[in-house]
Design a protein around this nucleic acid. Sequence first.
DNA 1: GCGTTTTCTGAAAGCGCTTTCAGCATAGCA
DNA 2: TGCTATGCTGAAAGCGCTTTCAGAAAACGC
Lengths: 346, 346
Amino acid sequence: MIHNDQRKPRPRPTISDVARLAGVSISTVSRVLNDTAPVSPEVEQRVLQAIEMLNYTPHLAARNLAVRKTETIGLLLPEVGNNFFAPLLRGVENAIRPTEYQLLVHASLRVPDPAPWRHSPIGEHNADGMLVFVNSMDQAELLRNYERGFPMVLLFFTPPSNARIPYVGFDNTTGLCQVVEHLVQVHGRRRIVYLRGPVGNFDSEEREAAFRQTMERLGVPVYPELVARGNYSSISAEQAIQELIERGVDFDAVFAGDDDAATGVLAALRRNGRSVPEDVAVVGFDDIPFSVHLNPPLTTVHAPVEQAGYVAASKLLSLLAGETPELATRLPVELVIRQSCGCNRT
Amino acid sequence: MIHNDQRKPRPRPTISDVARLAGVSISTVSRVLNDTAPVSPEVEQRVLQAIEMLNYTPHLAARNLAVRKTETIGLLLPEVGNNFFAPLLRGVENAIRPTEYQLLVHASLRVPDPAPWRHSPIGEHNADGMLVFVNSMDQAELLRNYERGFPMVLLFFTPPSNARIPYVGFDNTTGLCQVVEHLVQVHGRRRIVYLRGPVGNFDSEEREAAFRQTMERLGVPVYPELVARGNYSSISAEQAIQELIERGVDFDAVFAGDDDAATGVLAALRRNGRSVPEDVAVVGFDDIPFSVHLNPPLTTVHAPVEQAGYVAASKLLSLLAGETPELATRLPVELVIRQSCGCNRT
DNA sequence: GCGTTTTCTGAAAGCGCTTTCAGCATAGCA
DNA sequence: TGCTATGCTGAAAGCGCTTTCAGAAAACGC
């Protein structure tokens, strides 16, 4: 027996269908839908019934057009699949849930559009405001949106100096300071390799500055051959360390850039027979859930990613409510000492 | 000096503004925007210039309303923060990128709306089609959408028997069969604890059935005290194992449900002084990126999550193109043998 | 040179909704 | 009883766009 799977072209019911069935005008239907004006109980009942019968759902695009709001906020990401993307999104969702807002996520991967007039895939044409992740929007467009008064909040980078756009990030400086001090003062490491993040990454640069500054303060030289390029990923970190070892460079500790990179560092070290933390101590940044399960458990700096998402979304929400949230939020990070630095050996 | 940050109420330019500035009608502007009809070069030039000057961007909601398409596809998730959510999203994005479609993501967390007429936060009112993750939409609504002919494809669960909705999932049966055989035939384990997934989870149930079936085929009893409740999370798995140990239950292997759970299992085992894999072998499912970095490296079943996202999105896209994609796709999984089962000891 | 295409353009009708405005009862008040 | 509040409802305008339709101008055919 053939199952009848014809796509029934029965069009979705509109507000007029409901109105007709209920024997009222569309204005009245709209009113019971939105509770914007009193409607007599019996009429309301009829309308509700009609809605039920037709299985009617209002068409959001039409409503948006009429009220000139989209009720959605956008989240622009440079890529997707980053390991701390999940907690970030969770934070954003938590902030948004109690509101009427939807979340529109777009991972750009920067494929520039030939048509000059269609700017970002998400912008004031389809969102009331947006969360902009570092490196997901070029500065020109950022500024253009700002000029227009489009509500935005920045994640993990600061706005150009003349634009007063709220942002949230981590207190990279304190975090780096703590972890470096720990390496140097507690464990006496001096030849510390510094694995950079992606070029142009805000956090990465801030962290490097803090690193150099702290090292200087502690009177430990930053050996040029010990700062290597990474991009916050496991493989690139693994390669970088492999290369250092092959080049015969001597080092007794590595700051991996982030925890993802740290796993790569651990792998490379293990493969080359260097023991952690005896031969070389390794520390990360972020404290992703897996760090505790690494071998050895990773000493790292805990960055409250979920909270960052929550705070950023909250800021945007308050912006949308016409308030003016605090401009800058640097979330505190915390050194979490496990074993990869040399502490807590069993 | 006070920076002037007044939100300039200058309204966004509309197509009429462009038309006026260019000295043409809005129809003409629309035509150059969409290239839907020939426009003389000089006029086109004028329009383009006006667009440029006004920094005009078409209002998507209005366009959507007019063309009766939203150009977005929805992704409905039961929660966010799942560890294989990132690769899934990556797959979906990859499939979508070459198209005009946007991605609207919503993590539900099931807070039922009191208003009966506003169904899902994402549906035919704001998307042309959607990807439905297991447990993110109740069956009634699924069916209602299906009746309406709303394009959907299901992720990791099969539709109710009478609904011909495409879906993609993993070949759980083969995967489980392989891993269990490995445990039993290669390593001679017999008292295997089986950690379930969340109740009502499709994959979980399919896997359990396969587990029992394979065990029977191999002539190994499934001890009731060895099947424990988990929910594909590290903590719950840790608790479950802890409890088994405290109850004095004897076992020599554990199938953890998924890799997240496996980390919990490893932690519990380590804490109780059981060595892996000597005392107990542990295996997972999914092969998330971290599995290789666990201690010991986890033997698991590789599930192509990103591919699942890609395939699902492709199916939806073809549905939207009016084609009829293959109904069911079970992606092949593959046993990846590392050390936690007892192989490859150094 | 005149009808006939062909090319380009604008007027206007919608898309499905909200919202103002006015209208009509009915209730309240004197 | 007449008057103004009050409560409820519908007509109609409009949100910013696309798309038919028809008209004007230019190009073509003979």
